[in-house]
């Protein structure tokens, strides 16, 4: 059986305070707006239970065929400081990868210092770790753009 593991971390400085950023990171309505890994892909939340032990399911992929099913299991929710969860990616009936993810949020001036840690286990080959890395990088770039849009909307209101 193929099993490849990898681990990577991201650090970002974001303009929203921790309480508001926490909401954007965990609320399914917000996640649909920034969580897709790249241009032309969508993320649609099908079920959500934001509680410790709760499980979400979303679909992800090209808008015409979002065939990746992702099950999120929330293990730790310490709003607005830390979340720990796993994501299992399923294609057809087969799990292709799982990841263990942490969000750590610290106040930094009027904004937030966000640290994201991701440990990946791939069952389909070593390339999955770099694909996950690219996916998170894309998602975090989307997050930055989405926060700017939220900020502009709030400023206009």
């Amino acid at each position: 059986m193929t099993l490849n593991t990898g681990h990577f971390e991201f650090k970002r400085s974001l303009a929203l305070p921790p309480e508001r950023l926490w909401e954007v990171l965990t609320d399914p309505r917000h996640r649909e707006n920034w969580g897709a890994p790249e241009e032309g892909m969508v993320l649609t939340v099908e079920t959500a239970d934001l509680s410790e032990g709760g499980q979400d399911r979303h679909r992800c992929g090209p808008a015409e065929a979002p065939d990746f099913v992702v099950d999120t299991r929330w293990y730790r929710l310490e709003a607005p400081h830390r979340a720990v969860f796993t994501e299992t990616v399923i294609v057809g009936d087969e799990a292709v990868a799982t990841s263990l993810v942490t969000y750590a949020l610290g106040a930094a001036g009027r904004g937030t210092a966000l640290e994201v840690g991701v440990a990946v286990s791939s069952f389909v080959g070593p390339e999955a770790a770099s694909e996950f890395h690219a996916g998170w990088e894309g998602g975090l770039a989307n997050l930055d753009a989405y926060l700017a849009k939220l900020d502009a909307t709030a400023g206009a209101a």
Binding site: T86, T88, I90, E94, A95, T98, L100, F123
Partner: peptide, 12 residues
């Protein structure tokens, strides 16, 4: 999370 008969189990 996932079980493949006689080959693999994945859990958290």
């Amino acid at each position: 999370f996932h079980i493949r008969d006689r080959a693999r189990l994945v859990y958290g």
